[in-house]
Amino acid sequence: MPASPKRTKRKASDPQLPSHFSMVRSFKLADFVTLGNGVCGCLSLMFAMKALLTQNTDFLFSSFWCIPCGVLFDFLDGRVARWQQSSSLLGQELDSLADFCSFGLAPAVLGFACGFQKMLDMVVLTYFVCCGLARLARFNATVASLPTDQNGKVRYFEGTPIPTTLVIVGVLAYGVYHGKFWRFANPMFQHEGPFASFSQAFTPEYVWGGEVTVFPGYEFHPLVLMYGLSGTLMISRRLRIPKL
């Protein structure tokens, strides 16, 4: 009879492989709520890109609505975590990444979709995104040293919380609703659907507030400065916002 193949014995020191989907199964209910925030941010980004491709404002409004939905999930995840007494470092990091997607990247892409597409506009939008990223990183690095109340809850935020960028999204939504950002060559086909004709040209020179020329070849839209102000307020350490 042929010799049976030798079996390699697992050494006692070998680490045991984790079971399948162990990370997902370790999630608490609050973590799934936080993921809902991240889903809203991703959908907002994709709807904004779809709006640019189709010139269809229906997709743009879908992108707008994703942001307040993300704020709702962001509000609920902390309540659920305290209700279940299940806070964790993983949940904290997950919350920051979801916030960055929904309230950092998505509002900046929405600004671009609404017409802030000049080079100087993009510089301001990039500054805004970097401020949001830095603000979330600072919070994670310093949250353990911030003063807390008797329940262990942080008393205040240093700088404005990143979900306050909902105000910017509200301004953009108001402008689009009242025709202050998008103009179409043939408005009667504005809601034609996902295969709208590209003759419905998006013309960024009609952006609300107009353009300002800094010097020949370099223009920007003054309304984009609300992103710069929001980013600056987020990274301020002198501004302290009581946490509700």
Rank of each mutant, 00 (worst) to 15 (best):
M1Q: 09
M1E: 11
P2R: 11
P2C: 07
R7W: 15
K11Y: 13
A12I: 00
L17F: 02
S19M: 04
H20T: 00
M23D: 10
F27P: 02
K28N: 08
K28E: 11
L29D: 01
T34W: 02
L35S: 13
L35P: 02
N37L: 07
G38Y: 12
L43A: 10
L43H: 04
L45N: 01
M49Y: 14
K50F: 12
T54Y: 15
D58H: 05
D58I: 14
D58M: 07
D58S: 14
F61V: 03
F64K: 15
I67N: 00
P68F: 08
V71Y: 06
F73K: 12
F75L: 10
V80D: 09
Q85C: 13
S88K: 00
L89H: 06
L89D: 11
G91D: 13
D95T: 13
L97K: 13
A98H: 04
S102D: 09
F103V: 00
C114G: 05
C114L: 10
G115C: 08
F116W: 15
K118P: 07
M119I: 15
D121A: 07
V123Q: 08
V123P: 12
L125M: 06
V129L: 11
C130R: 06
C131P: 11
G132H: 06
L133D: 03
A134L: 15
R135M: 13
R135N: 12
A141S: 09
L146R: 04
P147S: 08
P147V: 06
P147E: 04
T148N: 06
Q150M: 07
N151G: 04
K153M: 10
V154R: 00
Y156C: 04
F157S: 02
F157H: 07
E158G: 01
T160P: 03
P161W: 04
L166Q: 12
L166W: 01
L166K: 12
L166M: 13
V167F: 08
I168S: 05
G170K: 12
G170V: 15
G170Y: 14
V171G: 04
Y177K: 13
H178K: 06
H178Q: 06
H178I: 01
K180Q: 09
W182D: 03
R183D: 07
N186Q: 13
N186M: 09
F189Y: 15
Q190H: 10
H191A: 12
E192T: 14
P194R: 11
F195W: 09
S197M: 03
S197Y: 02
F198W: 14
S199R: 10
S199K: 09
Q200T: 14
F202R: 14
F202P: 01
E205C: 05
V207T: 14
T213Y: 00
T213P: 02
F215L: 11
P216Y: 05
G217D: 10
M226H: 05
M226F: 12
Y227F: 08
Y227C: 01
G228I: 09
S230P: 02
I235F: 10
R238S: 11
R238M: 11
L239P: 02
P242W: 01
L244K: 02
